[in-house]
Write a protein that binds this DNA or RNA. Structure first.
Length: 271
DNA sequence: ATGGTTGATTGTCAA
């Protein structure tokens, strides 16, 4: 991908079934040559994880945490990973929504956190909708936990299922009451982010420009209607800002055959 | 206001 051996490309993608989309994972590898891929919604229990096929794609270091039918996260890497195991069981659910590792970037350890935040259901009221209450509680817990470790070099990625800025959705006004862009969600996500993180995607694209990573399956023509949302994120601690070298939203992936409703996002680091 | 599509799973939930 890039010339320097210490350059590093990290991709996050909600793949929406890893086993169904293994061929697309190969295509992602060819198109972006990622060093590390963080996946969400793998929907595969650990004993059925396709480890051999993924090793053959060049990802010799893998960490995964999956369950039947729902959720599931994985980190696929060409460089060595050390699993971080002292992480919370968010909301005590035993869900597979977070996996973390450390690796070496420019000779120094970096923590990498891969999240799949609950989508939150349809009704944006925590009293009426337990899924929405779960979503808010999850973000609150994560905010509190990361507040205690702001001194670590950290990259946080994933499907956070919240589009925090006005230009992260196709219509700010129309989505204010739609789960993913409601004030209780956007306020919380920005509070979490501002407590120690820099938005690496918006480092490259100004806040007044539209930026999406997800387009619903429920549109006849996703490209023509372009009713997108930025649900997928890459955050970094400020000490990594000087290492940022580029950002790519692989919008073309939304037109791949039988693809995910999310597209991959890549962020490049150099020393 | 409602419906629209997809995946894992096989009646229905989750997104």
């Amino acid at each position: 991908m890039m010339g320097n051996a210490t350059d590093m490309r990290i991709v996050t993608w909600n793949i929406n079934s890893l086993r169904l989309r293994l061929p697309l994972l190969a295509r992602l590898g060819e198109d972006l040559r990622p060093d590390i891929i963080c996946l969400q919604e793998t929907k595969v229990p650990d004993d059925l994880f396709p480890a051999d096929a993924i090793r053959e794609l060049g990802y010799t270091h893998t960490l995964y945490r999956g369950m039947k039918a729902y959720n599931g996260v994985a980190i696929l890497s060409r460089v060595a990973l050390t699993s971080l195991d002292d992480t919370p069981d968010w909301c005590g659910r035993g869900d597979c929504r977070h996996i973390a590792a450390s690796f070496y970037l420019d000779g120094e350890a970096v923590e990498l956190h891969n999240f799949y935040i609950p989508a939150g259901g349809d009704i944006p009221d925590p009293e009426a909708n337990p899924k929405f209450a779960h979503k808010l509680a999850f973000v609150d817990e994560a905010t509190a936990w990361f507040a205690g470790r702001t001194n670590r070099r950290t990259i946080l990625v994933g499907d956070l299922n919240i589009a925090p800025l006005e230009q992260d959705v196709w219509s700010h006004k129309q989505l204010l009451t739609v789960v993913s862009h409601t004030p209780p969600e956007t306020t919380r996500l920005l509070a979490w982010q501002e407590n120690g993180f820099v938005d690496a995607m918006r480092h490259f694209v100004p806040a007044d420009e539209k930026l999406y990573t997800w387009w619903s399956y429920r549109n006849r023509d996703w490209k023509a209607s372009n009713r997108g949302r930025r649900l997928d994120h890459v955050w970094i601690t400020a000490d990594l800002t000087d290492h940022l070298a580029g950002m790519t939203v692989l919008r073309d992936a939304r037109d791949w055959p039988t693809t995910s409703d999310h597209v991959p996002v890549a962020v490049d680091f150099r020393d």
